[in-house]
Amino acid sequence: MEERALWVRNLTKQYRNFRLDDVSFFLPQGCIMGLIGENGAGKSTLIKSILGAVRPESGQIEVLGCDNKSADFIGLKEQIGVVLDEACFPAGLTAVQMERVLGGIYKNWEKETFLEYLKRFGLLSDKLFKDYSRGMKMQLSIAAALSHHARLLVLDEPTGGLDPIVRDEILDVFNEFTRDPQCSILISSHIISDLERICDYIAFLHHGKLLFCEEKDVLLERYGLVSLRREDFEALEKDAVLSAHDTGYGVEALVRRDRIPAGMKPEYAGIERIIVALAKEERR
């Protein structure tokens, strides 16, 4: 049986105006899962539930084989690298001071690794955290998450607000991290192109419900993009079409590859288009 880095079962968390509703999925070890969803979809609630920072009403969460409600989970957090949606370090501390602080918190803390990441990201170690740009703050958080031999990274919008070059660098770092088959990543992001680049699995949260959790390649194989004349489009089965729009010259449609006539050759649709279409379909 494949090892699961993360296993969420029937997770429900109720707030006054929001409900994370019966969410279930698992993340195999050595894989990267991208968590996608609009603002307020429940991504951060899900991540905080996994980390034990909020208490769900029902459901079970196993992280690296350990129930996150058990007493052992505190110790297991040594193996979880966390980046929250805001870099939460004290504004008046420098990276060097943060290194000393985190060195006193994590038993497996590696100063050299942290300093190497600082160097790699071009972060000045004596600069105050408050004087860092948003990108630099997130890079510092990522450096910290990667410097205590974590086996699972849980990252909430780590690339949000970063410029493309920095994002590219960070995505490379995540890819390097999962070269070790023991290491896995759960990453939430609005930037679907980033997730498409690095993720093995895509989970899509919409209004607190998990619409799907699929292998990225399966999604890309299932859906394709076709450009058709209007009469050819109208001849398609209704349930073959996920979304369509009139281009003026004909119709461009996102279709299920297994429901279209043989001989029709759909093009690569991209995860973003598939996600948007699925979200709109759900809304209908």
Partner: peptide, 11 residues
Amino acid sequence: EKWDSLAACFP
């Protein structure tokens, strides 16, 4: 600074 949120994730 939301350090308390991060601290809740520490071992």
